[in-house]
Amino acid sequence: MTDPVIIFDLLLAAAVVALAVASLSVRDLFVAIVLFITFGLLSALSWVRLAAPDVALAEAAIGTGVTGALLLKTLRHLRYVSGTLDRAEALSVTPAAPVPAPVIWANAAFCGLVTLGLAVAFLGAPRSGPGFDALVAEAMPASGVDHPVTAVLLNFRAYDTLMEVVVLLAAVIAVWQIERGLSDAPAPVLGAVWEGFARLTLPAIVVVGTYLLWKGAEAPGGAFQGGAVLAAVGLLLLLSRLYVPQPSHRGVARWAFVLGTGAFAGVALLVAGGGRVAFEYPPEHAKTLILLIEGLVTISIAVTLAALFHGREPVALRSDRGRA
């Protein structure tokens, strides 16, 4: 109990938990989402305290920023559809049917049981037990990059990361499949002040995103954080109506979605041979290949996240109205 920062940790942890409770219990959904965004940012801060700046960046940019934008957009859509857009009243968008008491008790028992299991497992586990530390340190020189997290993501466990990019691809395909047509809901637009702000900041955001990507090789940052920051550019373009998706853009968009997956998987296959297996980059080219993959994956992530925010395949509305 010597470290005064512990007090800060305690307060921060308490705030995180309190915000989690608040965001689920507050009546107004808009307030709930704002509380959730605050919660996400404070979680990211806690992860900085735990020496995980990469994770904190990813959580702040993707887990909180993009997710928050998605939630707000959906809330707006729901309010528009249910005709409560102009009213400030608390929105209950779902017709709530009463839940039978036995189900509630069963759920409560289930939650209690799981939480008990969690507590037992956490308190019974060794503090700072064994890990991959030594293995990673040993393998770092052959990885082609200087930053351990990037080495793990793009080299040691590149297979996981490829599949993560595939998940993103699956998401955008599913979203396009679910919703189509040009939205008849008025897109959330920025006010004049914000629009000016958007025009001013766009170049700066591009620079920051690219820098994050480039830095990923030796310092915290990388494809996912950079991609998310660049996706913010897409969000601002969509919000400020500087860019409006058109049906004719779909072809290019499809290629942009698959670019990351294709390049990642393609490189993984092409390096195999001469005694090497898939994903085994030749050490002398490792850095180049990793930067190439990261660059292309970043573009894909940025476009995909922006498309997930836009949320529907831009096709001319014709058959859609009648079919529903």
């Binding site: 990469d54 994770v55 959580e59 993707i62 887990g63 793990v152 996981d160 996912f224």
Partner: peptide
């Protein structure tokens, strides 16, 4: 660093 990479994957 490995769990950090895992969490980033989990976030995406």
């Amino acid at each position: 660093p490995v769990p950090h990479a895992l969490v980033i994957t989990g976030i995406v």
